[in-house]
Design a protein around this nucleic acid. Structure first.
Lengths: 209, 209
DNA sequence: TAGATTGTTAATCGATTAACAATC
DNA sequence: TAGATTGTTAATCGATTAACAATC
């Protein structure tokens, strides 16, 4: 259904649309025009209509868009209704925060296992999931259908582990490390979260007049 | 020195340049051409030269760029050499991870205080910083020169606190919540980190062929 | 029907890429 | 000097914005 080759800029705006529409829905708003949505989101009506029409005509001329309907459509486009099994590797401060902070089920994922190298953390529980030792990753992936790995460990640890993950068939990564996975393997999907890059960007913006 | 009005796309690439140059420097590489750097970073030589020349001519014809020199120049452009005082508000899982995970000093910031609402967390220590109660924020900012607030608390909490922070003079925010600060105040600098948006983007990319 | 608002095409703007003269 | 590689201008490409006909 999605026209192929939708640009990354459009894709990155979809979660934002989803988020604002969810809010409007929670506020009891039933319909909204592209103009009003643009005002709420500090965007433009043109861009919103252009973006949505990459995937289909979800509105109604003279009326606008159904808030709940559009939210649901975008959810489907993103794939939020079809959760994929995911493991998290690295149960340090960041890993524990990620594991507990996000509502994976509502974001198209199901966190099924957590792995960690440090013995002191093995056996602890997060979200009702017992932290397992790194050594069990391979077997676990073979016994369970896992699509995605969340990597909340240092660059070096990823470097050491990535081949194993790849050869176990994992092709999608949410990567918090500075290891460049996409450079090593071409047929993978990687979403990098570089927190330090984000902070440096803020630092730069503070300099500007 | 920076030509005014450098596009946000260029700015967001600066930390990436900084990161790769730091790596090369650590590996003992002394000089690099735009072509080689492009190959390392999966970028293009043209873009790298175009980007850098927004800020000055850092290279040498026929030679290339000094790795250490260029890294340092970019550090200065970003402002990493002039740390700004920062407070973190919200010492939950995410806040604790952020506080402990990042090397603020190397990123142009100095974390000087942490605040939290929940009594059970007050008095605990992170990075040698004792967590203080939310009630002391105002006084603390007045007694210390604080430029930035890191917001690792829920949307509603930000909504309740933002006016106070703004009126205490804080004009730059690293915002992990879904509260839209830039919409409320125009003369602020905000860098949003929307982890759930990032995860949804990954989910979308997994659908594509 | 008249008014509103979409879907879509066309125009503009800006970013990326290519080319090449300058120069180390 | 010759070769390499930058800095910078020009060409291309793509994304955003504007306009408007279609239609609810």
């Amino acid at each position: 259904m999605p026209k192929e080759g939708v640009s990354i800029q459009v894709i990155r705006r979809l979660p934002r649309y989803y988020r604002y529409l969810s809010e409007l829905e929670a506020q009891g708003v039933e319909k909204i025009s592209s103009t009003k949505l643009a005002s709420v989101m500090s965007s433009t009506a043109s861009q919103i209509r252009q973006d949505l029409n990459c995937f289909g005509g979800f509105g109604q001329q003279g009326y606008g868009y159904s808030v709940a309907g559009l939210r649901e459509e975008i959810g489907k486009i993103l794939g939020l209704d079809r959760p994929h099994n995911t493991i998290l590797i690295g149960a340090g401060n960041l890993g524990r925060a990620i594991a507990t902070h996000l509502n994976f089920e509502k974001l198209g994922f199901k966190l099924t296992a957590i792995f960690e190298k440090d013995e002191r953390l093995i056996g602890t529980t997060l979200r009702g999931i017992t932290v397992l030792p790194d050594e069990e990753i391979e077997q676990y992936i073979k016994e369970n259908k896992i699509d995605t790995a969340i990597l909340t460990m240092p660059k070096e640890a990823v470097e050491n582990l990535i081949d194993k993950l790849y050869h176990c068939g994992i092709r999608s990564y949410w990567n918090f490390s500075h290891y460049d996975i996409a450079k090593k393997y071409e047929d993978v999907v990687v979403e990098n979260v570089h927190l330090s890059d984000s902070l440096m960007t803020l630092r730069y913006m503070m300099n500007q007049p």
